[in-house]
Design a protein around this nucleic acid. Structure first.
Lengths: 213, 213
DNA sequence: CCTTCTCAAAACCGTCCGGTGTAGTTTTCT
DNA sequence: AGAAAACTACACCGGACGGTTTTGAGAAGG
């Protein structure tokens, strides 16, 4: 990415990216100050500018990395819950619940997603494209592949796995994301589970194999 | 609301709220400047502060009004497309398409919704509650009422109209909103229609009356 | 012990913003 | 007509921010 070469000590760079993720996530792009990021990283502001050309570059770099990491985490959840599933409904519900908690946990990951969505009008089109590709699009594609595999095992109908992935996300996740404003407003764990269950039930009525439905 | 009494000339106040809606929608809360709002309203900055105590008060006031207006607009669309519907699928699709265009049109309405979602972490809980109640919650409730009426006419199954309204919104609207980042990134009209049609089809498989499904 | 070099801490600069004060002008109401 | 209320224009303040320059601490080398 458009960083300032690979200059500087790697551990300082790591600290900066970690701090930037936290501060951008907490404050949003405009409110976050480079002073705050430097302070949270335990590093001088000059060092930040030694590693990253400017504020925007730092933000976009961190956003892209975060998006990929999040997609990786969700991919692991898919493998964990859907690869050798025996109880399909149980597996889908567990996946949906853990996914929601992963993305919306105030901790590190989800908060930055909020900042990106807030700033999307000011992000260059090609960077936004890359962010989508590394994150949401990749997740949808991975989920579609899993659904296709499940269809091959006779657990789902196999027409249009992409559509199934999209509708699964809508029914089990998007409502939670919207209601909690992508993690900004906490949401009771019980409600997450209830929403996931109702969403999975609806999903299975749409795409479940008649035998297993 | 927490404005400065009813002071000031009404037409000036109107111009200020209109300008504030536009500027906040275009720039977001933090980037928007009171100077820009005053300039766009064709009013001196002092007059803005004569009508509204400070920037936050102005924003929240405008946000609340916008939320209510948007809900009203959607309510009208429901009446237009769902009240005396003969072809249910056609009515639902038309409603979904027009709703998406209404909410996501870059013009006036949807843009401010983006700003609110971006700023939600900095909005007082009670004001957020009021915003939700005037906007999304009211819309969901109205939609549920329409679905209940449609169930009474034998066009939908009548179990849990609230859930039906939630899932209709998810399947026909939320995906469009997410993909277009609530209107920040334009979306082809054809894709809106395609998404609405597929969403309605799924919705009818979940909640359509067996006879009409 | 003294010089030299490197890199980060801290001070600094120009700019912009939210908000206020003031003095004078226009509108509205009686 | 005249007073009261509202608006305009403009300068100003304190503070924050992005980014740059200066300063100082400490290691390396003689």
């Amino acid at each position: 990415m458009a960083t300032t070469g690979g200059a500087g000590r790697p551990e300082k760079r790591k600290a900066i990216t970690r701090a930037a993720t936290a501060v951008f996530g907490r404050e949003g792009y405009v409110r976050a100050s480079m002073d705050a990021i430097a302070a949270e990283a335990g590093v001088s502001k000059r060092t930040v500018y030694n590693h990253f050309a400017d504020k925007e570059t730092l933000f976009l770099s961190v956003a892209l990395r975060n998006s990929a990491e999040l997609a990786d985490g969700i991919r692991e959840l898919m493998a964990k819950h859907l690869d050798k599933v025996v109880d399909l409904r149980r597996g889908l519900v567990d996946f949906a619940v853990e996914r929601a908690h992963t993305v919306l946990a105030a901790g590190d990951h989800g908060a930055l997603g909020r900042a990106i969505r807030a700033e999307v009008a000011n992000i260059p089109a090609d960077v936004l494209e890359a962010w989508l590709e590394a994150g949401p699009v990749a997740t949808r594609r991975d989920l579609a592949a899993h659904f296709e595999a499940l269809a091959g095992r006779g657990l789902l109908t196999e027409a249009d796995p992409e559509l199934a992935a999209e509708q699964f996300t809508l029914l089990t996740f998007q409502g939670i994301a919207e209601r909690s404003f992508w993690g900004a407003v906490p949401m009771a764990g019980a409600e997450v589970e209830r929403t996931a269950e109702r969403g999975v039930d609806a999903f299975l009525r749409l795409h479940g194999a008649p035998a297993a439905g």
